[in-house]
Write a protein that binds this DNA or RNA. Structure first.
Lengths: 343, 343
DNA sequence: TGGGTCAATGCAAACGTTTGCACAGGCGAT
DNA sequence: ATCGCCTGTGCAAACGTTTGCATTGACCCA
């Protein structure tokens, strides 16, 4: 490491480190001539302030930590992309951790980011996270925390924290309403893991759409499945084995819908002729299936930007007494052939 | 922030900060009794060493920086996943940056990571990066750098750096050989942007397979297209508009193959009956198309692990005089219906 | 000529660690 | 009794910044 330090510059110029520091900053009380001399030499020697030293001095880093269940999920990768962009604009760097859908690891990663003294942390709960002690502990020690997408299913008093979420219920409502409008009579829902905000929200939207249309929500058509392709497969099998199988299926997300799709193909059933199928998330894959899948676009990049924005505004300060804010990102129904009645 | 420091512990125990520091570490010369007292209190107060201060003292952080063109690409997301896992095991954290396929931004991000004093940096070149001055500068100032996947197309003397790459040429050779074996006579290649290692490697494998079989490589069948779906579309259109269109197409990666796929579907051509199609990367989407796509699995998670491993071994020290090492990750041909002759 | 003001700069402490060296006290060997 | 050694601990410097306060001249006005 041939790092140039303030002292090096100071030595060469016959100045003190403090003067050099002030000359490079916006500080008043430094003559224009020294300011110029310092800047010239700094550029010439390629001086880069040591962020580690700065962080120690300022008691805060310029690092934003992010914890997601799995980077490889298209949705989370897109969110991270949005976060990274917003952070970059604001001069922050982004540190990524995966919880691997594991509550213990989530807590570990949270602690690790706190040990790194991240300025703030963005977190989306793992599938397994049922208790929020680690979040409360983090908040208690002054960590700036913002949750996104998967947040506690029930508003936990005493857990006052900013959140950026999709309007899951509205998105699910739109899908279900669309299926009703297309004339499907037996609409099933492959729900996500219970107790998770997005599962509950989407389930709620599904039920509300049926209720508002005076439809009976048949309990055998509401199946707690899961987020994965395998979950979608087993869920779909269960639905098809019913005495009266559904004529339309709304899956909690695209991977589950893909699982369902494969089962339908395997059984020789035609989409949408025999069974209509819709997902949620608008993963790249959903538009490429044959037929392409109706789904809901969640604007994941915007979720990331918005979540980062909430965090950055807290970091600016002045919001200490403002309780948890909630930003809702609007989703969009994407209608494709998988739910369009031929006639 | 209610951070507990060494001094706090020392104060409460009537010890000095140095003793406390040594008691918590593995240092000899501390009595078992104080060691126990210190550990107990540390646990009780929830002491977490300040990594920023440690980093300043040790002149090195426990941060590994990663620069990728785009996080959202399934391939890079998977690589990062591997890196994160390896780093986590070794006690390092991962900082992610995107170059957005932009050479200027790549250099900026590299400088930013150096300013953060990352212990080491993993980098995959942006599509636009044609000069390596920023890499050389980083190396000159002592940064530990490892490249992966997209590396300089030609071995640049004076750029001695570790690399983890896919055996692109072998993978492309396997695809082309498979197409030949299936009896396709007019095999085209939609190549990636020229001057990029993976493009060149795959092109080379394609040509070698033809050559070894005494086949003529018709120049109109070798098209420099690009990495994106749009590139695949326009490339495929160009091929189909030839007087004698190919009966098999090998695209440089799955997104390009998907673009080609859409054009074929749009023109009512059947895969593989009219034109066989193969990609590279084994993106999730490729197995779900109808027909599913033959492709090459790159084991991206392994690339990430391996790249991180190369970096971590440098960080351990003792390799200062060893020149750039190259790890080649073996790819696997994944044969699916899109290239299987019906008969 | 003395006192004041002001601009430009330096000194030193602080951020929370780690670590080389010094030091105190106990103990055994001579 | 003296010496040296060993064990356990503390002091202080260092890492590279930032910043409150002190210092130095220069200049102006009475």
């Amino acid at each position: 490491m041939s790092d140039v330090t303030l002292k090096d510059l100071a030595g060469r110029l016959g100045l003190s480190a403090s003067t050099v520091s002030r000359a490079l900053g916006e500080h008043p009380g430094i003559s224009e001539s020294t300011r110029a001399r310092v800047r010239t030499l700094a550029k010439q020697l390629g001086y880069r302030p040591n962020l580690v030293a700065q962080s120690l001095q300022n008691q805060r880093t310029t690092i934003i930590g992010v914890i997601v269940p799995e980077i490889r999920h298209d949705y989370f990768a897109s969110v991270i992309s949005g976060v990274e962009e917003a952070a970059y604009q604001a001069g922050y760097a982004v540190m990524i951790c995966q919880s691997q859908e594991n509550a213990v690891r989530e807590a570990e990663q949270l602690r690790a980011l706190i040990a790194q003294r991240a300025a703030g942390i963005l977190l989306s709960l793992s599938r397994e996270t049922a208790a929020y002690g680690h979040l409360r502990e983090a908040l208690r020690t002054g960590t700036v925390l913002t949750l996104f997408d998967r947040v506690p299913a029930e508003l936990d008093p005493g857990l006052s924290v900013d959140m950026a979420v999709t309007d899951d219920a509205d998105g699910a409502y739109a899908v279900t309403a669309h299926l009703c409008a297309q004339g499907y009579a037996r609409i099933a829902h492959l729900a996500g893991p219970p107790g998770i905000s997005v599962s509950e929200g989407r389930k709620e939207g599904y039920l509300r759409a049926l209720r508002e249309r005076g439809r009976l929500a048949r309990p055998e058509y509401l199946l707690d499945a899961g987020f994965t392709e395998a979950d979608g497969e087993s869920g779909m099998r269960a639905l098809l084995d019913l005495p009266e199988p559904p004529d339309a299926v709304f899956a909690v997300n695209d991977p589950a819908a893909v699982g369902a799709f494969c089962v339908l193909r395997e059984r020789g059933l035609r989409i949408p002729h025999d069974v209509a199928l819709a997902g949620f998330s608008n993963n790249p894959v959903s538009g490429l299936l044959a037929p392409p899948l109706t789904t809901v676009d969640q604007n994941p990049v915007e979720v990331g930007c918005k979540a980062a924005g909430l965090l950055l505004s807290r970091l600016k300060g002045g919001l200490e007494n403002i309780p948890g804010r909630v930003a809702v990102i609007r989703s969009e129904l994407v209608i494709r052939a998988s739910t369009l009645r031929a006639g």
